[in-house]
Amino acid sequence: MLKLPPPIWALIYLLLCVALSWSLGWPSLPGLPLPLLGMALVVLSFILAVWAFVLFRRERTEIEPTSPSNRKLVISGPYQFTRNPMYLGLITLTLGIAIWIGAWPMFIAPAAVFATTNWVHIPFEEAKMRRQFGAAYDDYIARVRRWM
């Protein structure tokens, strides 16, 4: 699962959920869709992810999680509030799309993105960061939660 990056997994999950929703006739949940709330979450997800991406570029460190090493431990910007703002952005994006569309099968996508990132990608990255940055990384994870 590490060979494909999380944005590709998010796209795969969204496409599977669209296919499932379509095959079931787009079954909606009561009170949904909420297009404005969904759109707001989609916009928020891009702000969060782009902010983190720009910060990595400014710090001149690798954004690719499977890179052999990183030049710097980034702990400013959104990383002061969550250790995984890009992944949080992916979950927020898929949740926003699910709320925007309103079909209950679409809500499988954010749950699947969370599961994949939380139990596959993040443990791999945390082990790599701990090996590379040692006590500085341990101090960081003691201060900042994985999600929020």
Rank of each mutant, 00 (worst) to 15 (best):
M129S: 12
G134L: 06
E59P: 06
M39L: 15
M129G: 12
S67W: 02
S69T: 08
L11Q: 06
I12Y: 03
S23N: 01
T66H: 07
L16A: 15
D138Y: 06
R71V: 07
F46T: 01
T117I: 09
H121Q: 07
R58E: 13
L95F: 13
E126W: 05
N84E: 10
F133L: 12
L44Q: 09
M106N: 03
P33V: 00
A98W: 14
M39P: 03
P5A: 06
V113R: 05
W104G: 02
V43W: 13
T116W: 13
F107S: 02
N70A: 14
R143T: 02
I91R: 02
L20E: 05
E126K: 09
I91T: 02
Q80I: 01
V54T: 12
P7Y: 12
L11G: 14
R83Y: 12
Q132V: 09
N84P: 03
F46N: 03
W104L: 11
R146Y: 00
A135V: 15
F53N: 13
I108R: 00
T92H: 04
D139T: 08
M106F: 11
Y13I: 00
Y79N: 12
H121T: 11
I91V: 15
P105W: 15
A40R: 08
P6D: 07
P33Q: 04
I99Y: 01
M86W: 05
G102C: 09
G77E: 13
A142M: 05
T82V: 01
A103Q: 04
W100M: 07
L15Y: 07
L24E: 08
T66P: 01
L90Q: 11
F46H: 09
S21E: 13
L95Y: 09
I47L: 15
F133D: 14
V18N: 04
L16K: 06
T94K: 04
C17M: 11
I8W: 04
A111C: 10
A98I: 11
W147H: 10
E64Q: 15
T82W: 07
V120I: 15
G134H: 00
Y13R: 01
T116V: 05
G102W: 02
L16C: 14
L16D: 05
I97D: 08
L15K: 05
V42I: 15
L36P: 10
W22S: 15
R143P: 00
L16R: 07
T61E: 01
R71C: 05
F53K: 11
G31T: 12
P33L: 02
P30T: 11
A109E: 12
P85M: 10
G102M: 03
T66Q: 13
T82D: 05
W26N: 13
I75K: 13
M129V: 01
N70L: 12
G102A: 06
P30F: 04
A111E: 06
S21N: 09
P68D: 12
P5K: 11
G89P: 03
A142V: 07
S67P: 05
L34V: 15
G38H: 10
A10E: 08
Q80F: 05
P27L: 14
L11T: 14
A109R: 00
L4D: 06
T82Y: 09
L95W: 10
L20F: 07
E126S: 06
N70K: 12
A142I: 07
V43N: 10
Y79C: 04
R145W: 10
S67E: 12
R130A: 15
L24A: 08
I108A: 14
M129Q: 14
E62D: 10
Y137F: 15
N70G: 04
F46E: 03
